[in-house]
């Protein structure tokens, strides 16, 4: 839903047990008209959606969160300022259709969001 309309993946690579994506936000997405009119900020739910969709892209499977054990929004993401971001995810298989996904969104100087979750295959 968000991939290629709200953000795009520039490249990705594995590093130890993590996958790191370099992404770019698409700053003219229509939702910014309402979030917020005076200051565009990535909605918190979209930032965790970005992490889920990066995992989905890597696994080549449609995923849905089953639990969000912990999700912390540390700093607002402003698409006009923070256009280029990195997403790191760590995926563990719990059962054949359930994955544990930990992840974060960060730039060179800042960590914006961290999550610890479980997802199921749709």
């Amino acid at each position: 839903m968000l991939l290629n309309s709200f953000f795009k993946i520039c490249n990705y690579y594995r590093e130890n047990d993590q996958v790191i994506f370099n992404i770019e936000l698409i700053g003219d997405h229509p939702l910014y008209a309402g979030h917020f009119p005076d200051r565009a900020i990535v909605p918190g739910v979209c930032s965790i959606g970005i992490i889920k969709e990066c995992a989905s892209f890597y696994l080549q499977k449609s995923l849905r969160f089953s639990t969000l054990d912990h999700c912390k929004f540390l700093k607002p993401i402003e698409p006009l300022i923070n256009k280029s971001l990195s997403v790191t995810i760590k995926i563990q298989v719990i059962e054949s259709s359930t994955f544990s996904i930990s992840g974060s969104i960060f730039s060179m100087n800042s960590c914006f969001v961290t999550i610890k979750s479980k997802t199921i295959i749709l």
């Binding site: 918190g44 965790i48 849905r64 969160f65 089953s66 639990t67 969000l68 054990d69 999700c71 929004f73």
Partner: peptide, 16 residues
């Protein structure tokens, strides 16, 4: 000021 969500904790998604 504005109200923002800073944390989700122990959320269970049963259905959409």
């Amino acid at each position: 000021s504005m109200g923002v969500i800073t944390q989700f904790k122990s959320f269970h998604v049963h259905a959409t």
